[in-house]
């Protein structure tokens, strides 16, 4: 039966702290504080509660407070051989990761951040506690308000608590790098490729899966390298990613070249990490209209994270 979030003293206290009025900015780990524009310095800064509420390995779900560090969450999940698809940026919080909505460079294998979210509890603009989504791994009951919160940069509500879907950690996960191969060949031939990063000359590959499958794909990788006249792939750490993101289609990422400056492209995904900021293409006009209506409907007084704007707004 429905659990009243107000009966949870931690959530109730968080809602009371936010209250019904005045500009508020919610701060997670502060790791991506400038995305969407820095927050208005006059806004009151609040931090979400921390801690893992309930981890049920056999349900593959975990309820966690938004202020919990992703790395801390993953340490606990790993004790049961599980994790979530959220990226592990050092210092970032689970709530921050959802508010940002970015997926990590291993999304090809681990899936998208947005698809990990089953339920979100947040504080709305009148200081009210709201539950969106549901606790089970499958749920289509009502409108999917959760999706609006993911990537909203905290501009629609203050995320307090969430239930995430967990996934088993693969039996084997290894990184290799090799110069001079076509990364498209890896995407085509290696089903265990959980991440393929390419900087125009070097390709880094993370193979993840059952040991026997990973070993098979490493042999395939060696064949691809031999055919290209390249050295054998060597164990390697993943590359450091340039600071800016350029969201492209997968085929566009493959077409990157020296004229684009230094880059690391996520092959099969389309995200390209570049050393200079790139303006996103102009958004669809009609969609901007709906986005404005969303903001107006959820935060009519514009009290949440003033100064920060999601793309296109």
């Amino acid at each position: 039966m429905r659990r009243d979030p107000c009966s949870d003293p931690v959530l109730a206290a968080f809602a009371a702290e936010i209250g019904p009025s005045g500009p508020v900015t919610i701060k997670g780990g502060g790791t991506h504080w400038s995305v969407g524009g820095g927050p208005d310095p006059t806004a009151r800064v609040v931090a979400a509660p921390e801690g893992i509420v309930k981890f049920q390995p056999s349900e593959t779900t975990v309820e966690v407070r938004a202020g919990t560090k992703v790395t801390e969450l993953h340490e606990v999940l790993a004790e049961h051989g599980q994790r979530t698809s959220l990226p592990e940026d050092p210092g970032s919080t689970v709530g921050g990761a959802l508010a940002l909505g970015w997926s990590g460079p291993a999304r090809l294998g681990r899936g998208l951040t947005r698809d990990a979210v089953l339920q979100i509890r947040y504080v709305g603009s009148a200081g009210e506690l709201v539950t969106a989504g549901g606790p089970t791994v499958k749920n289509v009951s009502g409108f999917d308000v959760c999706r609006l919160m993911i990537g909203s940069l905290g501009t629609l509500g203050c995320i307090a608590d969430m239930i995430l879907r967990t996934r088993p950690i693969p039996e084997l996960e290894v990184w290799h790098s090799v110069f001079g191969i076509d990364p498209a060949d890896v995407l085509q031939s290696c089903a265990t490729a959980g991440s393929i990063l390419w900087d125009g000359s070097c390709t880094w590959i993370m193979n993840a899966g059952y040991g026997v499958d990973v070993e098979h794909d490493l042999a395939v990788l060696a064949e691809i390298s031999a055919k290209a006249g390249a050295d054998r792939p060597a164990p390697a750490d993943p590359p450091k990613l340039p600071p800016h993101r350029w969201s492209r289609r997968p085929s566009e990422a493959l077409a990157m070249g020296p004229e684009d400056g230094s880059f690391v492209a996520e092959i099969g995904v389309g995200m390209v990490h570049v050393d200079h900021p790139v303006s996103p293409p102009p958004p669809d006009e009609g969609s901007v209209l709906v986005q404005r209506r969303v903001k107006q409907a959820f935060d009519p007084d514009s009290r949440f994270n003033p100064g920060r704007r999601v793309g296109g707004m």
Partner: peptide, 12 residues
């Protein structure tokens, strides 16, 4: 593209 900007109206 990999991460379209704006609120996830698609998901909604």
């Amino acid at each position: 593209d990999a991460e379209p900007s704006g609120y996830d109206l698609r998901g909604a």
